[in-house]
Each structure stands twice: as C-alpha cells, then as structure tokens.
Write a protein that binds this DNA or RNA. Structure first.
Length: 413
RNA sequence: CGGGCUGGAGUAUGCCGGUAGUACGCACGCUUCGGGUGCGUGUAGACCGGGUUCAAUUCCCGGCAGCCCGACCA
C-alpha cells in the first residue's frame, strides 16, 4: 500500500484524553479512533493488525476442531431469563434497549445462552458430540469505568469458543487441548515468554478457572509467578490450598502486575440443564451436555502488544501481527533517481506478494523516519542515494535497530 | 457507584471579568532535502443551559462529555 493513499495520518502529539500507552500510540499512529470513552473504531492499519491477530487465533482454534460461526449481537431476554442472567440484580453490565414493537433486548455480553440453544437444534445423540464452536464478535459490557485504552472497553472483540462434550472425561481432554492451543496463540503473537497460565477464581461458573496473564505494568491484576515452572496464581486465589493443588511453593513465587488476555472455564451442565441441551447416550439414557467456555480478547491483545513491546519512539509490532512486514521509505523527490528506484522496488515487492507499506510521500527524511518508528513495522527498507547507486538497500530491524544491507532479490527471497 | 480533576482553532497548550495568544497542522510562495529544514502570507477556536455582573471564555449552579484513584469486571 502506498502511504500517500492511506487516509490516516500520524500525529506528533498524544491526545490529551488518553493516558494509557496503547491508546496514545495507536491514536497517534492512526490505527484507531476513539468514539467515546471505552469505544474505539479500527482504522485501516488497525484493522489489518487486528485481522492478523484474529487469523492466528482462528488457525489454532481450527486446529483443535473448532468450527467458526457468528451469533447475533442482539439477545433474547426470555432466553437469558431462563438462566437467571437477565435481571440487573444478577448481571449489571447489560446494554439494554427496547423494540419498537414492545419488549426488551440487550447487546451480547457473552454467548453461552444463545449457543446452547442453537445446539439444542442440532445435538440429540451421543453421535453428535463432541462439538466445539467459536466466533469472533464484539461484546458489549456497560462498564462503569472504561480505562486503559483498548485494553478495557465497553465494546471489544472477543473470540469465544464453547465446547459441548458427552461427559467430564471427554470435556477434560478438550480443556487440556484448548489450553495448549492458547499457549500456541500467545507464542505466535510474541507474548509467550511473558504470558502465564494462571490459576484463578472461576467466578460464577466454578470454584477455579485458568487465566492467561501477560506480565505488564499496565495490567490490572496481581499474580504470583513461578518463573521456572512458567505458572502463576492470581492474587484472588493466592491460598495455601491453591498452591498445594498446583504444586507451587510460596518461596518460588514473585509478585507481578499482569493483564488477563484469555481464560478457560469449566461450565459443567449449568447451562445445558437450564436450557434443555441433552443427548441420548449409547444406553438410551438422556444426559445433559457437559460444557466449557474459552475466551481470548483480540482487541485487548492488540493493546497488550503495544504496551509490552513499544519503545520511546513508537509501536514495535511482532512480525506475525504487523499490518505490513516492511515499511519502504523513499527519500527521493519529484521522480528523481532515488524515487524511481523506490518505485521499482515497491512494484517488485507487490508483485512478489510481499507485505509492504510504501512511504512515497513528499516529505523530509526526519519526518518519515519518525513516522516509520511510530507505525512500527518490523523492518524498514530505506531508499536513499546510496541505494539508488549500489542496488543495496538498508533494511533496519525496528525492534533492535540492527541494519543489514540487502539486494532486491534478498529482500524478496 | 464513592472520591478528585478537566472542557478554548483539526491537535497540543499559555494568559485572562473588558480586542482570545503561541506551537504544530492545513493552504499558498520561496528555501531545504538521510532523523520532524528555515522564512513569509493565509486559515481556523471558548461544550450546552441558567445565574451573578455595566460586561462572563474567565466567577457560581445544573446538565452533558472526558480523564484519574478506588470499587466492579460472569
């Protein structure tokens, strides 16, 4: 993509109404636009990044048998009443509204209920199980206080997968596989080293659950990390009982601030019993389906990546999620030899299918470099006089600043 | 939800009870061209409602919006 055609522009100064690093940088770089407190739009560069994150998660969910679908945002009050999760006394962060024809609806905060009901149409025999279904969708939660930029919004994207199994054994098998899949996701995103499987409270669902916590000073949670075992315990369940269950010793644990980037829950038969999701087993006996739910927040992850990897010059994307692999920066002017060389290289890269953002704007080198640092592509290819003459291009690694000279063929290769 | 703060050109800000200043941006011209070049000209602004006052962007009240701390976060 030619940067001269990109409608978003960078800003020299951070917006006054943002304090979090992720929002400041993403707004300055033109990745996102703030609509309201806790509500952000994703602009072209931001969407490309988000889509890359989504694709990694999608691949890993598919790899463990997940089937993608998408459910409605508008929710059926009657359905949620059956599980006692409609009443404001029970769940207080609904965005509720009314139909012109009368009656209430709400914007989806999560999707256990609708998916369980969908499954009642399709599951009736043990032969129909197990089923693993997931979606990427914006969730709406009427938080009293949005904060931390895109890491905690009122509208945010979530990947939510739900498992439907015959029994606890089958469920436990998938639960373990989902945990492994999550670990792969965070590794691919470049967050593997600092993301810990974390023992936590199960909330309303069960006594315990597992979270995936990424260590970051911008985090809201406090966890206790065993670095050698790469495990952690959330402060909320930092008890002798929990530590014993995990085989962790207090003396091996260090306190860290962290942000929750994923979680996995055992749901048991709580939803299937209330909503009538049963199947007939081999013996002809009707049984409730055993469920689990598994969430990851792609938009939050995007914020976490900025928080943990950015430096004082701007964003630093891991290659796996960057909107473009290369930022081709031309220092030429008015069709001179330098810009002709850059144009030719750009054409070759596009032809070869290489992901590249081409800064073909009429601007000074300093401004272009500053913008390039801010935008955070993994590699910058600089085309100046030297490159035009020698045919060797400076390829600068954004994260380390390391410079390597490469020929056109080597870059495309 | 409790506590605190803020609201002015597109953005970021200084001052102020009486003609709203600066920087960046943007437009035009010249200049410059490997880390936000320099100069000139132009462009553009007080959240909404009420009150006090001769006079309110400024002070007071209410609303709305935003930010921070805490609480909450299935």
């Amino acid at each position: 993509m030619r940067q001269s055609q990109l409608f978003t522009k960078t800003r020299r100064e951070a917006p006054a109404d943002e304090v979090s690093k992720n929002a400041q940088l993403l707004v300055r770089a033109g990745y996102i636009h703030k609509e309201m407190a806790g509500v952000y739009s994703y602009l072209p560069l931001g969407l490309r990044t988000l889509n890359n994150i989504v694709q990694i998660i999608r691949e890993e969910m598919n790899a463990i048998g997940g089937q993608e679908l998408v459910m409605s945002a508008l929710q059926d009050k009657e359905l949620w009443s059956r599980t006692d999760r409609w009443d404001d006394e029970k769940v207080d962060n609904w965005f509720k509204t009314t139909f012109k024809s009368g009656g209430e609806t709400g914007l989806g905060i999560t999707h256990e209920e609708p998916l369980t009901r969908i499954m009642t149409d399709h599951i009736s025999s043990y032969r129909d199980l197990p089923v693993y279904a997931y979606q990427f969708q914006n969730k709406f939660r009427n938080e009293l206080r949005a904060k931390s930029g895109i890491m905690r919004g009122k509208e945010f994207m979530m990947k939510d997968l739900y498992s439907f199994s015959r029994n606890e054994v089958e469920h436990a098998d998938f639960y373990v596989r989902s945990r492994e899949a999550y670990i792969k996701v965070f590794e691919r995103l470049g967050l593997g080293d600092r993301t810990y499987v974390t023992f936590a409270s199960g909330g309303i669902f069960s006594p315990f659950s597992e979270e995936f916590q990424t260590v970051s000073d911008a985090g809201e949670d406090t966890i206790y990390v065993d670095e050698s075992k790469h495990l952690a315990v959330n402060k909320e369940v930092y008890t002798d009982e929990a530590l014993e269950k995990l085989g962790l010793a207090k003396t091996d644990l260090v306190e860290r601030k962290a942000i929750e980037v994923g979680n996995i829950f055992n749901l048991g038969t709580r939803f299937s019993e209330k909503l009538g999701l049963t199947y007939t087993d081999e013996a002809g006996e009707r049984k409730p389906v055993v469920m689990g739910s598994y969430g990851i927040g792609p938009t939050r992850l995007m914020g976490v990546l900025v928080e943990t990897l950015a430096d004082d010059k701007g964003i630093v994307w891991p290659e796996a999620v960057a909107p473009f692999k290369y930022h081709l920066v031309s220092l030429g002017h008015d069709g001179d030899e330098v810009s002709t060389t850059a144009d030719a290289l750009y054409a070759d890269l596009v032809k070869a299918g290489v992901s590249v953002l081409y800064d073909d704007r009429e601007a000074r080198a300093g401004e272009k470099f500053a913008d390039s640092d801010l935008l955070g592509m993994p590699y910058r290819i600089v085309v100046g006089k030297e490159a035009a003459e020698s045919g060797l291009f400076e390829v600068v690694h954004r994260a380390t600043g390391e410079v390597v000279k490469k020929s056109r063929a080597e870059i495309i290769g």
